[in-house]
Structure formats: C-alpha cells, structure tokens
C-alpha cells in the first residue's frame, strides 16, 4: 500500500492534443502534508493541477489517488474520489447565494448529510453565515476564497488542490487564508497548492516542487529550498532566455 495520497507519475498534458504544456512531471503528496508548487510564469503549474482535476487532455502518465487510478476521471467525479479542487479565479458562482453555492458543492451527498456539512462550513467560516442569503458576487476577495475553500471541504476530501489561493488578496487577507490552510492541514487534510507568492507559501508548507518550462526542476523540504540559490536561478534563468 502506498503511503501517498496523491501520486503523479510522468504526466504529460496540455490544452490541445499534440501540444503538451507539461511534460513528464512527477510528484506526490502524503497524508496530512502541505506541498507547494512554485515556478516562473508559464512553468505549467496551473496546467498540472487542471490536468489532475481532469479538465485537460492527458497524453501520457498516471495519476493515482490512494492507490487507485484517476488519470482520466470525469471532473465531476473527483468529489467522490476524495479530491477537491479550488480554481484560481471565478471559483464561486457569483449569481447564486452563498447558501446556494454551498448546497451545490454538497449535491453529491445525501440530503441530510449535505445539510450537516453546510452547517459545518458555516461553523468553520462564521463570516459566510452572515452573508448566507446574499449573492456570492457581493463578497470581498477574502470571503470569496473562504467560500471556495469551504465549498471544497464539504465532501470531506483527503486532499485539496488550490490554484494560487492568495491571488488578488491584500497582504492581511493572505495571512488569514494561509492561517486557515495551516489549520486545515492540522486537521488531517493534505494540500497541494500552486503559489506565485513563493516565499510565503514555502514558509507554511512541508515540501516544495519547482517547475520550469513544463518540467520538474527541483524538489525537497521547503525550508531547505528557501535557502537554495538554485531556486532564484530558475526564476531568473527563464527571464534571461525567452521561449
């Protein structure tokens, strides 16, 4: 039995057949672990997460969740497979109320369970309860992020994938959101997140993968990589040689 919750092996994927954005990427996430993916713009970080979520065209490689193959799973079945995904922007339904957003995320569950889980989300994020009858479009950036994360947790996933949870947030909000994520990991949920805000993300995560030009470049314990000059070089290197 594999100790890893998520195992990505030699994944090659892209938006159009024959035009892969990521090539031969491998990584893994263990139970209750927080893992960050960083890399320069265009490294394929978001592409990797979308490919795992079943939104893109996977050409080669394999994705396993707790040992079972989910490589080409339909996106809507991810929730049943204990995997949740929070996209970067537009990750809530602005035209639906906060309550409807949560109910929607819990649709895969039996009605009674769904009600309990929505209640749980309100307890975890009391701000959301205040706005439960309002359209989610009126929420602030931080509240939106909480709604998106709250929604992802409804199905009690073992791992949550987040695409740049700090994007567009004020520094204060970033701290709040990251604190929530740390609490989440403590409660036993594993996290795989892509972050542009590399240093801050590495400080709270256990391990980090560095991607560049669609391939694995470095990986290791976050605190070690924080000191590693190669990371800076990868960021600068790409700027020096345009694709």
């Amino acid at each position: 039995m594999s100790a890893h919750i998520l195992q990505i092996a030699n994944l090659t994927a892209g938006y159009q057949p024959g035009l892969p954005i990521i090539r031969d990427v491998s990584m893994h996430v263990s139970k209750g672990e927080m893992v960050t993916i960083i890399g320069p713009n265009g490294a394929g970080k978001s592409t990797l997460i979308k490919a795992v979520a079943g939104l893109l065209n996977v050409e080669d490689g394999r994705v396993e969740l707790s040992g079972s193959d989910i490589t080409r799973i339909s996106t809507h079945k991810m929730a049943d497979a204990a995997l949740a995904y929070v996209p970067q922007t537009d990750n809530i339904f602005a035209s639906l109320t906060v309550d409807e957003n949560l109910k929607l995320g819990a649709q895969a569950l039996p009605k009674a369970t769904a009600r309990e889980r929505v209640e749980e989300a309100y307890e975890k994020f009391p701000d959301l309860r205040k706005f439960s009858r309002r359209k989610a479009g009126v929420l602030s950036g931080g509240q939106r992020q909480m709604l998106a994360v709250g929604r992802a947790l409804l199905t009690h996933p073992e791992i949550v994938m987040l695409d740049e949870p700090s994007a567009g947030l004020s520094p204060k909000m970033v701290d709040d959101v990251f604190a929530q994520l740390v609490a989440l990991v403590k409660s036993g949920v594993a996290i795989l997140m892509v972050e542009q805000n590399a240093k801050a993300a590495m400080r709270i995560s256990d391990r980090t993968y560095v991607l560049a030009e669609g391939r694995n470049r470095l990986d290791g314990a976050s605190d070690a990589l924080l000191e590693d000059p190669q990371v800076t070089q990868i960021y600068l290197g790409r700027a020096g040689r345009k694709q």
Binding site: H76, N91, Q107
Partner: peptide, 24 residues
C-alpha cells in the same frame, strides 16, 4: 430543487459546476 440549482450553476459556469461535482 437540487436539479434546478445545478442548472442555474451550469448556466453561470459549466467548468466550475463540474468542479463542484455536477454532471454536465
């Protein structure tokens, strides 16, 4: 209804609805 909610969600964003576990 649940189905009605799912329809309204798909109408706003099919991809996000799928991520939410809705079968398109």
């Amino acid at each position: 209804t649940r189905l009605g909610l799912a329809m309204r969600a798909v109408s706003e964003s099919p991809t996000l609805a799928e991520i939410n576990g809705i079968s398109l």
